[in-house]
Design a protein around this nucleic acid. Structure first.
Lengths: 115, 115
DNA sequence: AGCATATTTAACCGAATGGTTGACGATACT
DNA sequence: AGTATCGTCAACCATTCGGTTAAATATGCT
């Protein structure tokens, strides 16, 4: 798989990963907290997060021993741009979404609660 | 895989299938003609078309011994709606795309050239 | 009827996917 | 220093995927 779109769409094709994205829409989260609602191992979630990262759908940043996950608009944008060129339509209006996410991106990661 | 989005995104994750969609954007085509530019067997293309059909990305209609393939907006729409819901800021704005494709849908399949 | 064309099906194969468990490295707490 | 927590890595397993070839089905032509 070399085309980035392969990777983005494949990443979006899994319900666990889409659920993770939806969770991250509400708030940035640590890996362990992302995993908590799912009935699968932390290692499995870790792999899902790696796939989302590789697809440009999320970004991860380590702070201490905690790795924070946040949405990255670039992956979704590339998918949306393809659909746009495809349908030559007005696709996914990511404008507002991107404004939202890029504001987030330009903000520092939240402080981790020390434990 | 039960969520229809799984099926749509998985269908979009393959470069051959995206290329097929792009071809169908220009014109409805018979299976054999869809297969022609690809360096793989007709059977492989037939499987790809079945996957696109199951995803609601194309519709197929048999006319005589020829099976015509055309774009179906519903699959793309569901993907796009999810992305919108994901961004959740603006209403779904598929107007241009839907006008385009629904015009296509409401036209009869082209007459097959008899051979 | 008999042959050619259009497409799918079946059986198979290697590679990728999505999950598991267990060990490991890194960071924090006391 | 010792222990607990966070997360990844490695090895493994079953299933799915994308392709192949060969046979089967369906329609059309003469």
């Amino acid at each position: 798989m070399s085309d980035p779109l392969d990777i983005v769409f494949a990443a979006l094709a899994d319900p666990t990963r889409r659920a993770i994205l939806a969770m991250l829409l509400e708030d940035d989260m640590a890996v362990t907290d992302v995993a908590e609602p799912f009935e699968m191992s932390l290692a499995a979630i870790s792999k899902h997060l790696a796939i989302l990262t590789r697809a440009g759908l999320i970004a991860q940043e380590k702070r201490g021993r905690v790795k924070w996950c946040k949405l990255d608009p670039s992956g979704m944008r590339s998918a949306s741009v393809w659909m746009q060129g495809f349908g030559q339509f007005e696709p996914v209006h990511l404008d507002a979404f991107e404004r939202f996410l890029e504001r987030e991106l330009n903000e520092p990661f939240p402080e981790a609660d020390t434990d």
